[in-house]
Design a binder for these strands. Structure first.
Lengths: 199, 199
DNA sequence: CTTATCTTGGACCGGTCGTTCCAGGATGGA
DNA sequence: TCCATCCTGGAACGACCGGTCCAAGATAAG
């Protein structure tokens, strides 16, 4: 029958994620995508559509491949507050050191992108927030069941707090914040959620 | 002697702040600045320099006119935790309602801009963070002196926490977060900082 | 009024933007 | 092998980008 694609769309998506994440989607031209993926404009447009669709597809893939696994692990981790502390330690380490230091988080970065008005992209932003908040909520519930949490803490509000904190960490890390500051900021929140006995 | 400027540079700056803030500096072209200010390219370049200089000047003006007064008021407010609570209530209200709803914060938005690498701009980002953190620190000290703060709270870390939280609020508000969620998130942090008696 | 100096409007520059298009190559069933 | 179908490379599109330039206008000291 017809010809078949000469490339793997998922591999191409991974390369686009990397590009949009490091450089910023708004300031990345199609020519750069062509160069990074090795594809031609034709293949790009035939497979994904225009630039907004490209950005949306890359964002979805980031959520599924980078965010979701971490969220799922956090939600499934039964240790309670130590799991949340570990989440932030891993986060700060990934944002401030290694190959992706100072890249921030693609979802966080997209919050300020012009494309945030596109409904396809806004939906991913909202889905990300809901998933992050749900994972935090699950970890807080485990903490409450283990008696680690101070009485009177609203778990829903606490989950929102931790999500907002993660956005703050991602944002500041892209501008070169020091890991120690970010870690101390996260620890102060968790200490405030802890029972006096456990603290 | 020579001719004199036919416009007020500060008024023009205010119009640029508004433009960059609402639309995003990266995706705003010089032509839009020309239209918004009513100036010609010549006057723009003669007065401010190229686009990065424009962006830096607008960012500095935002800090001085929008951020600094609020920070100063917070630092001077002796009420302690209620002052911080009031800060977040005002912040959420300004970000989620009124003329500038969903604009976020120009400084927060600039953290993900391509121009964050420009040293002139990075300096403003860092200055903003230092000022915000110092104001939070001052308010926390007042709270400690009034016995509102739980024993063992590291004020420096707590100030960083509150600053990160503010960035999170600004970021999420630009994507349309609900005011109630943001407020609840802020309140949970402050509750965690409060002594059991005051809570 | 003249003159020196600065500002202003707007044409213009090369380059890049996102997008479209088509000729030619590759594919696999008949 | 032939053919219908799809994919690919690359040229080309108009629009816009940030930046430069200069003639004409405005200004105020002499």
């Amino acid at each position: 029958m017809p010809d078949i694609k000469h490339f793997d769309p998922e591999v191409a998506l991974d390369q686009m994620v990397r590009l949009f994440w490091e450089r910023g989607a708004d300031v990345t031209g199609i020519a750069e995508v062509v160069q990074a993926t090795g594809l031609s404009r034709s293949s790009l447009y035939a497979t994904f559509g225009g630039k907004e669709r490209l950005q949306a597809a890359a964002l979805r893939r980031y959520l599924e491949r980078c965010s979701r696994p971490v969220f799922d692990a956090l939600a499934a981790d039964g240790r309670g507050l130590p799991a949340i502390a570990g989440f932030f330690e891993q986060l700060v380490a990934a944002r401030c050191a290694g190959e992706r230091a100072r890249w921030g988080c693609l979802v966080t970065n997209t919050h300020t992108s012009a494309a945030r008005e596109v409904s396809e992209i806004r939906q991913v932003l909202d889905a990300h927030h809901a998933a992050l908040r749900a994972a935090m909520r699950a970890a807080l519930e485990a903490a409450r069941d283990r008696g680690q949490v101070r009485p009177g803490l609203d778990l829903e509000a606490g989950a929102e707090t931790l999500a907002l904190l993660a956005y703050g960490v991602n944002l500041r890390s892209r501008a070169g914040a020091r890991a120690a500051d970010l870690l101390a900021g996260a620890r102060a929140v968790l200490d405030g959620f802890t029972t006096t006995e456990e603290r």
